[in-house]
């Protein structure tokens, strides 16, 4: 069992729905996004082309961040998902530096608010209760670990049942993402990677990312 994601760059329309949904799902503080989208343009009018590159934690099979973490706060579970135990993180940021994909963020400012001087919004108040983020620790995408765990408990299948699938995958209006078990050769994601010849980002780093991209 190894969860992974494939992102079809030919389908991505760059709507930022995944970025916003991720922010909403995890009640992320101002200025922090666990997903990012790079946009670029090639060519000139009338032959200009726009390209989108959604970037997130790659949940590598051989993650540099897990090796770098001095307190074992960064963990990799048996299903391949890399998470951070906020209670153990000491805030040394070595994982942040060690990640060649720059997928991690340091949560430095506890006073940061969406509307400074006007108090926390209802969203922020709710987030503090439902999904508290410590300051002085490193945060990153967790493949919506809580959704997967809760879904499996209900007997649902991650990648097939929306309730057990990462929020970014569900929200994508272009269905540009597929989530599932990379180890199962019959899973939708495994077939998608095979058929579309999806590739990993910078495999030369040797971390064996679990996020694949369809580029052709």
């Amino acid at each position: 069992m190894k969860y992974g994601m494939v992102i079809d760059l030919k389908k991505c329309v760059g709507c930022y729905a995944c970025v916003v949904k991720c922010k909403q799902e995890h009640f992320l503080p101002p200025g922090m996004t666990w997903r990012k989208i790079l946009m670029s343009e090639t060519g000139d009018y009338p032959n200009a082309t726009k390209h989108m590159y959604p970037i997130l934690c790659n949940h590598c099979a051989d993650p540099a961040c897990v090796k770098a973490c001095p307190t074992t706060a960064t963990l990799q579970s048996d299903d391949g998902i890399v998470t951070i135990d906020q209670d153990k993180c000491v805030g040394c940021r070595y994982c942040l530096i060690a990640c060649p994909y720059q997928a991690r963020t340091y949560n430095a400012d506890e006073k940061k608010q969406y509307f400074p001087g006007q108090g926390p919004t209802d969203f922020e108040k709710l987030g503090a209760k439902l999904y508290p983020h410590q300051t002085g620790v490193v945060l990153k995408c967790n493949f919506c670990r809580e959704r997967i765990d809760a879904g499996i408990e209900k007997g649902l299948q991650p990648g097939q049942d929306m309730e057990a699938t990462p929020a970014c995958v569900n929200i994508c209006p272009a269905k540009a993402m597929v989530f599932g078990d990379l180890d199962d050769p019959d899973s939708e994601i495994a077939r998608y990677i095979r058929e579309k010849k999806a590739v990993q980002l910078h495999p030369e780093f040797g971390t064996d990312p679990s996020v694949y991209y369809v580029i052709n």
Partner: peptide
């Protein structure tokens, strides 16, 4: 460190197996 009071974890955890810090 973001949490200096947790520094002991850097020595007492099993992080030394892989982490140079």
């Amino acid at each position: 460190l973001g949490h200096p009071t947790r520094f002991w974890r850097m020595v007492l955890s099993s992080g030394w197996k892989t982490s140079w810090i």
